[in-house]
């Protein structure tokens, strides 16, 4: 029952995020949204995912967004165009098609669902004797799919390098421009 309420809250928070113009409030709503998602993951037995979502989604993500807000602006400009109606139509049609698609899905928690009948039993029954760690998520993450986790680390490194290049180069160029300006005595655009 709790997960149904949490899901309804998440939908409300998401819709509020569309309506609100103040970006600070929108970012706070994102934090609430991530925290609700983390609680929902606990209800759905995904405790490791819940911890990560609470720490990374509700923590680091919000700090990054607030930092961006501090460097840019915190009010969204009001803008009413016909484009919004077209977007709404596209969204409703896509959503309708997706909901039609869910009608063939197995019910949540169904033991006969394909997700539970092929690979999963091997990991839940043999991973403790094969790897020796009681937490199956850890043994899959660090051992069976260790290479995948290495790939994840490479992605994070690449992202960090990209951020440094994007922001760092801009700062360096600005400093250079500021140094050049007085010597040449001309205004640049």
């Amino acid at each position: 029952m709790i997960d149904l309420v949490l899901l309804a809250f998440m939908a409300l928070v998401a819709i509020a995020a569309v309506r609100i113009r103040n970006l600070f409030a929108v970012i706070m709503l994102t934090g609430i949204y991530s925290l609700l998602a983390a609680s929902l993951f606990v209800m759905l037995d995904a405790v490791d995912v819940a911890l990560t979502e609470a720490a990374v989604g509700a923590g680091i993500m919000i700090i990054l967004m607030l930092a961006t807000l501090a460097l840019t602006t915190s009010e969204e400009k009001v803008r009413m165009t016909r484009q919004n109606l077209l977007a709404l139509v596209v969204v409703v049609i896509t959503g309708g098609a997706l909901i039609y698609g869910t009608l063939d899905m197995p019910k949540v928690g169904d033991p006969q669902a394909p997700a539970h009948t092929h690979l999963a039993p091997h990991f839940t029954q043999h991973s403790v004797e094969e790897i020796g760690i009681p937490n199956m998520v850890t043994s899959v993450l660090a051992s069976y799919r260790g290479l995948d986790t290495l790939g994840e680390a490479v992605v994070v490194l690449t992202a960090a390098v990209a951020v440094i290049l994007i922001i760092g180069s801009g700062r360096a160029r600005q400093r250079k421009r500021r140094r050049e300006k007085p010597s040449r005595g001309e205004t640049r655009l």
Binding site: L64, T68, A115, V140, L141, T149, T158
Partner: peptide
């Protein structure tokens, strides 16, 4: 037990998602 494989997949996806958000915000 619940299926651990999607959990691992989503753990990875959360971290990658934050990395991509950081690039977008930059």
């Amino acid at each position: 037990y619940s299926n651990p494989l999607p959990h691992v997949l989503i753990l990875t996806a959360i971290v990658v998602g934050v990395a991509l958000t950081a690039v977008g915000l930059a």
